[in-house]
């Protein structure tokens, strides 16, 4: 009797959460998968078209994936650029700042300054950097700086060649703080006598970093790297604010394509296919992460 009550209690405590998650996560995902095999016009199931949406996305949509030129372009390629540059810079700068700040007395102030943008929404980050990039050299700091050395103003957001880099730099400014804080905590957990021993043996700061610090914090580094990569696949807000995916779709990313196709173009089935592709991209990365994490644990 008592045991039965306990069982019911277990369900009672978890039921509200499970119902909400089923209604807003599980069922919608199944419906989106079904929608991705349909035209979805008018936000409803209209006509089953099999994998047509996926085939068109990957082969005939130049704004999604265009391999005909070099360098390739399209949302998928832009996301790849984000992975290399944004993730690379966040992790690289994160390590650099964590290591350097560790050696000064005002470390906590520096870390706070770099971490502060984590509190700010991507919307505000976008405006902060639009001001830096303003084409008018009397408004935008970057063009003013270029003007001082005799270079004409550049329309950073208005040009296909620079727009992606400009947005990525803004995102790196906002995202590095996370890496700094995590790496800094990891560095502080390294016993000082190990570092001391290396120094006594004549290792310079670079050797110490390369052969002692880096191997000892490789787990947090890989966790942050994978976390940032997953974040890149979902990135939307800052692109929407800074460029609306433009000019002419040059700065679209996958999550932006989803929004554009579904809510601007009304191609709901096509947009659903983009959403399904996002899931298909994230799952293997997470699986890899779990595997690595497990491996790391068994080694320890």
């Amino acid at each position: 009797m008592r045991r039965r009550v306990r069982r019911l209690q277990g369900f009672a405590f978890t039921a509200p959460a499970l119902v909400l998650m089923t209604v807003f996560l599980v069922a919608p995902m199944l419906f989106t998968i079904r929608l991705s095999l349909d035209t979805g016009r008018g936000f409803q199931l209209r006509e089953f078209i099999g994998l047509d949406n996926f085939v068109r996305l990957l082969t005939r949509d130049r704004l999604f994936l265009d391999l005909s030129d070099f360098p390739p372009s399209g949302a998928v390629f832009n996301n790849l650029l984000w992975i290399f540059l944004y993730v690379g810079l966040c992790v690289g700068l994160g390590l650099l700042i964590a290591v350097l700040a560790d050696r000064v007395r005002y470390e906590s102030i520096v870390k706070s300054i770099v971490f502060l943008p984590q509190a700010i929404s991507a919307t505000a980050v976008g405006v902060i950097w639009l001001l830096i990039y303003a084409p008018n050299a009397r408004v935008g700091l970057l063009n003013a700086g270029l003007g001082a050395v005799g270079v004409d103003p550049v329309s950073w957001i208005g040009s296909r060649d620079t727009v992606n880099y400009a947005i990525i730099v803004a995102a790196v400014w906002a995202g590095t703080g996370l890496a700094v804080v995590v790496f800094s905590a990891a560095i502080k957990s390294i016993p000082t006598d190990i570092i001391e021993a290396a120094r006594v043996d004549g290792a310079g700061p670079f050797q110490t970093f390369r052969h002692i610090t880096l191997p000892l914090i490789s787990l947090p580094v890989s966790v942050i790297t994978i976390t940032l990569i997953i974040g890149v696949i979902k990135v939307f807000d800052i692109v929407y604010i800074m460029s609306r995916g433009g000019p002419n779709g040059a700065s679209r990313v996958i999550a932006y394509s989803f929004f554009e196709e579904t809510f601007q173009a009304g191609k709901v089935g096509y947009g659903a296919a983009v959403a399904v592709l996002m899931v298909l991209l994230i799952v293997p990365i997470v699986a890899l992460n779990i595997r690595r994490f497990r491996a790391g644990e068994t080694v320890r």
């Binding site: 995902m29 989106t32 997953i230 996002m278 899931v279 994230i282």
Partner: peptide, 25 residues
């Protein structure tokens, strides 16, 4: 309660679902 650990595993799996799959439904 029966199935507790399996259900919890399912909850963990839901962390990775991008909101995009849920918006239209």
């Amino acid at each position: 309660f029966p199935g507790r650990d399996w259900i919890f595993l399912g909850v963990l799996a839901m962390m990775i679902i991008p909101i995009q799959v849920s918006l239209v439904p």
